[in-house]
Design a protein around this nucleic acid. Structure first.
Lengths: 181, 181
DNA sequence: TCAAAATATAACATTTTATAACAACAGTAT
DNA sequence: ATACTGTTGTTATAAAATGTTATATTTTGA
């Protein structure tokens, strides 16, 4: 009913389900706590999702970002701002672009998906494993050992942040992000 | 009745089978422990209502499942039910436990995270990379080539579904899921 | 700005449902 | 037959949900 009408009165729900209004109030409280609806004086309405935090697009290439995205790269900026990019490729470019405004940069270990600091991470480029996000592809590892073992099987080069940044920036001259998806 | 309606009252079952409600409670308790149904106050309903929201616990070891969890294993069952386990280890065990009720089993390629069919996937065990989920650890690959390249760097054995199932089932005798987290 | 009406909340009473403990019963092996 | 086992029903008690009432809050309209 709420979804169809957008707004329903407590009394209508009470009559519809043949229970007291008190029960409706109590049940709606649960839905409110789940953030699904919003109670206003005299009724309920659908909660607006607009104020949700999720950033759904890559700040750099504007490609949609999936929720699971282990490739994502996050930039913590001054003034409580946060930016998210689809992968380390765009993350590094944006990072360099913003400069000192970046307080921290986070990415994920490609193997374990644990969150790590980008500046101390190990980056793998030129590997045979194509994740299909952006070119040139950059994979992130929290652990040098993991990065090297990965390269053993899938080829590629292990780099530090600055090295990777340089490589990507160079490649940027000739155009970068794939448009796919 | 539960599968048809999705939800049934204890009283209805009691009248239908001409036994006391106490007996229904007791019998349902067994089905609950098997994870087939869920008791709510005043009735029973199917455990996982089709396409509905996320299941937050591993059906097998009851460990919380993170949303990103690329290790997760999903079982599509009859009557629109879906089960989710924390990793292939629990997934395979549950898969074998349920038998024919399983219509399909899904997991993810460890590298690309693309969704693949478990029965045709490639499984890697005894590798040096510890993901810290369950023991013995089982990683899933959609691509034989990826699995072999992975093993090149991180060691381990590449197996087909039945082989992996056998290996895990054997290890199960001596206790299985890690209790962590 | 105020009072009246409408709606919401809190506290308590009532009803419904669940659980635990026990007793009765049937089947089985000794 | 006797003791044992497992299932079921009964009862008393606990827990949860709902309803009722009194009181607080918000809205409305003058």
């Amino acid at each position: 009913m709420i979804q169809e009408e957008g707004h329903v009165k407590i009394r209508d729900l009470s009559e519809k389900f043949e229970v007291s209004e008190m029960t409706i109030h109590r049940d709606l409280k649960l839905l409110m706590e789940q953030g699904l609806v919003k109670k206003i004086f005299g009724g309920v309405q659908l909660q607006e999702v607009s104020n949700k935090i999720q950033q759904k697009q890559c700040t750099y290439c504007h490609k949609p970002i999936s929720n699971e995205g282990k490739l994502t790269y996050q930039l913590i900026l001054s003034a409580n701002r946060i930016e998210r990019t689809c992968c380390a490729h765009c993350g590094i470019l944006r990072h360099k672009q913003l400069g000192e405004v970046v307080l921290q940069a986070l990415c994920h270990d490609f193997m374990t998906n644990t969150t790590i600091s980008a500046t101390t991470a190990w980056f793998v480029m030129d590997t045979s494993l194509q994740m299909g996000c952006c070119e040139p592809q950059v994979l992130t590892f929290g652990n040098k050992d993991h990065a090297e073992k990965f390269v053993k099987g899938f080829d590629g080069t292990v780099l530090r942040f600055e090295e990777a940044a340089e490589r990507v920036t160079e490649a940027m001259q000739a155009g970068c992000c794939s448009k796919q998806k």
